[in-house]
């Protein structure tokens, strides 16, 4: 898939995510939209997966540590043929397969987080186990910048750095917003670059909405990371990216547009609510 096709795929997946959430009346849309391009880069370029065998033992693994953004995974899995459109239609309904935070029972999910700060440690364990077995597969993980307030993130960062888990690639979704305020006004987080580097990681910082840069940053890390460090790519992103009135807004965490707002949002993504 070329870059234009991936960008178009990203738009389609965002649209499906929003349609799903508008219908259900809930979902962390803005959190999903800040890491949409990362997911597309992963599932349509970077990750070694078998579309016809989602349980393939040698596949790369993915951990969505900020798992409220896992709603964006569902359209990806549907597009890959692992779940179906009816599952998306039922999102958030009684007795449905799909909900606000992914579960292990969903085909394609390698770890079901939800409580912030947990997923990175689990990704570390996966990477350690696969490295011990001499497997070449990678573990990819997305964490949020708000999640970096959790002390457990730094416990895991220390573990990965010490053990030189070069088979672990973490994307830090730096959308700069928590639920109630701008991160830097809650507790200052910068310099995140220096912090991760100090914990023994190979660190890069890119525009997290540029799919080409995401892909090239990961590939560059594989060639440049000669010391075998775990990889942290800080992705500067915009929460709610792609819908102008949802972008970079405090108090839109977990917010789903309704009525006219929903129609405008869907239209901006190239669709309509009843499409």
């Amino acid at each position: 898939m070329n870059l234009d096709e991936m960008n178009e795929k990203c738009r389609q997946l965002k649209l499906k995510t929003l349609q799903m959430c508008v219908k259900a009346g809930y979902g962390h849309v803005t959190s999903a939209f800040s890491c949409s391009e990362i997911l597309v880069a992963l599932y349509y370029n970077l990750m070694n997966i078998d579309k016809n065998n989602p349980s393939w033992e040698e596949r790369d693994r993915f951990v969505m540590s900020k798992n409220h953004a896992s709603i964006m995974l569902y359209p990806v899995f549907e597009d890959l043929g692992w779940i179906n459109q009816n599952d998306l239609n039922d999102f958030g309904q009684d007795d449905s397969l799909l909900g606000g935070h992914s579960k292990m029972s969903i085909v394609g999910v390698d770890f079901a987080g939800g409580s912030l700060g947990i997923g990175l440690g689990v990704a570390c364990g996966m990477a350690y186990g696969n490295k011990a077995d001499g497997k070449s597969l990678k573990t990819y993980c997305i964490i949020g910048d708000g999640e970096c307030y959790e002390g457990s993130i730094w416990e895991s960062a220390m573990f990965a750095g010490h053990n030189k888990l070069s088979n672990l690639v973490v994307f830090l979704d730096r959308n700069r917003l928590c639920m109630t305020a701008v991160n830097e006004n809650i507790l200052s987080q910068e310099s995140l670059f220096d912090k991760w580097r100090a914990f023994g990681w190979y660190v890069d910082r890119i525009d997290g909405h540029d799919i080409a840069k995401i892909i090239s940053a990961v590939k560059k890390s594989f060639s440049e990371n000669v010391e075998g460090k775990p990889v942290c790519i800080i992705c500067d992103t915009i929460k709610g990216h792609g819908v102008d009135f949802m972008e970079d807004q405090v108090f839109m965490h977990g917010w789903v547009p309704k009525g006219e707002k929903a129609e405008i949002a869907l239209k901006q993504l190239g669709g309509a609510e009843n499409e």
Binding site: G117, L120, C124, Y128, S152, M158
Partner: peptide
């Protein structure tokens, strides 16, 4: 916290 998370990841392998 890291103990349990890392152990869980290992178990998943």
């Amino acid at each position: 916290q890291s103990l349990i998370a890392v152990a869980s990841g290992l178990a998943l392998t």
